[in-house]
Each structure stands twice: as C-alpha cells, then as structure tokens.
Amino acid sequence: MMDWLYTFIVEPLSYDFMQRALLVAILVGAVSAALSCFLVLKGWSLMGDAISHAVLPGIVLAYVVGLPIAIGAFVAGLFAAISTGYLKDNSRIKEDTAMGIVFTGMFAVGLVLFSRIETDQHLSHILFGDMLGVTWGDLIETAVIAGVTLLIVLTKRRDFLLYAFDPQHARAIGLPVKLLHYGLLALLSITIVASLKAVGIILVVAMLIAPGAIGFLLAKRFETMLVIAMSVAIASGVLGTLISYSINGATGPCIVLIQAGVFLLALLFAPGSGLLRRRAAPGTHAAGLPIAP
C-alpha cells in the first residue's frame, strides 16, 4: 500500500514538470469550474465550444505578427462571441445556427492558416493540450489570468447570477446588463486562453461544462453549486494528472474522463432528483413536485 502511494503520488511530485502540471490542472480546473456554473445556468454551454474553436486563427495570426499568443486568441474568441450575437439579433438565423457557422468558419480559417504558415506550435498540442510540457512562463501566465478571472467572477457573482436568472429584473433594478453580458463573454474567452496550454481547444469545452452540470445536479442553491463545481474540478485535475503519469496516458483526456465519471454518478445518485434515487424510493418527492406543507 505504502509502495503504491509512493509511486502514485510522491514519485511524480519529485519531477518539476509534474509539479507544474498539477498546479496548472488546479488553476484551470478552478477557474473554468467557476465559469461553467454561469454557462450551464445561462444556457451558454455551447458558447464555450464555439469560442474555443474560434481562437485558432487568432493564435496563428498572433504568431505571424509576433504578438503574445494569448492576445490573439482572446481577440479571436471575443470576435466570435460578438459576431454570433450580432448575427442572431440582425438576421432571421437562430443563435445555435449562427454560433455553428461562426465557429466552424473561424476554425477552418485557423486550420488553413496553420497549414500554410510555419510555426513552432504543434497542432495536436493546441487541440488537445500539453499539460506535461507546461513551462514556468506558461504557468505564471495561466496563474495571472485565472487569478484575475476568479476574482472578478467571485466578487460579482451575485450580479452575474441575477443576470442569468432574470435579465429583465436585472435591467429593471438598473444593473449594467450589457456590461455583464459582454463581461461574461470576455471572461470566458480569457479562461479558454488560460486553459489552452493545459487541456487544449477541444477538451476545454468539457472543463467548461461538466463541473457546472455536476453542481447543478447536486445543489439547491447557487453558492453550493459553485463550491461543488470547483471542488470536483480541482480534485479531478489532480487525480487525472497523477493517473495520466502512472498509466503514461494523455493528461487532458484523463481529467475530462474523471469529470464525466463524476457527472454520471451525480446523475444517478443526486438527492431527490437522481435517476436511481427516484426509482429506489418512490414515496419520496422528486424535484419539481410540490411537497405538502
């Protein structure tokens, strides 16, 4: 047993790259979990998908112009979000269609550019992340972005929550709803940028949905949902990274797999609304049904 614990935890921690990988997994997990709560509640789950694909051309162009890759990715992500909103408001096209066209279009532009331009980036690292190859510089960048984003999201969480729950009331009491709307999109874009190095464009989508969905299934109150989502994300980040080391598998997918597993458990066993709970105890109430006072 002690041997096993040693090879599973202590040995990997003796390596620099594993220490960095664990820190990045914790940071990315925490910040994307906090945002995922709002995305799940606002019905924006696929917005994360759209933005994460749309950042690819930004990455390539930033490389060409010599800007930091994070800036290119952020601008491209925000552009995707805003143009989706513009298309929805000013044409007959519905939001999901507009989103689909914008993000696949931009992703294709990114792929074409990538295939024509020599860069020092590996496509597979952009797509799926390279957690074990994270440098101290990457780590600091991720830490700054994650820290600032978390600070904003957590201090203004009541306003974001109210905007997600009832935008009309938010407006009626004079909250800056436009700022909240675009602020959330900007935070989403920058979070994706911060997560790129670790989990990549494709898998960041999972990190932006699964923790929030798990919290949603288990909590009756937003604060609880937030705590659950962040704890699950951090725990699966650490566990996934350690597992990927010991089985010598890809890190990002290991983390996502664990989150998916937790989601499944929550779906089956959530108090009150869990699929198995409902069947096991037909006399108790299911969520949504009024209880006699």
């Binding site: 109210l162 729950f165 009331h169 009491i173 949603f216 109150r221 937003f222 949504g288």
Partner: peptide, 17 residues
C-alpha cells in the same frame, strides 16, 4: 424554475440594486 435559488434568494434579488 430549475434554477438553484431558494425563495428567500429570489426575494433578496429585489434588494440587489
């Protein structure tokens, strides 16, 4: 109505402004 807020949370939203 699936939103994770309690009755008192909703009423408190009236005070948020």
């Amino acid at each position: 109505w699936n939103f994770p807020v309690l009755v008192e949370d909703v009423v408190m939203m009236g005070r948020q402004g």
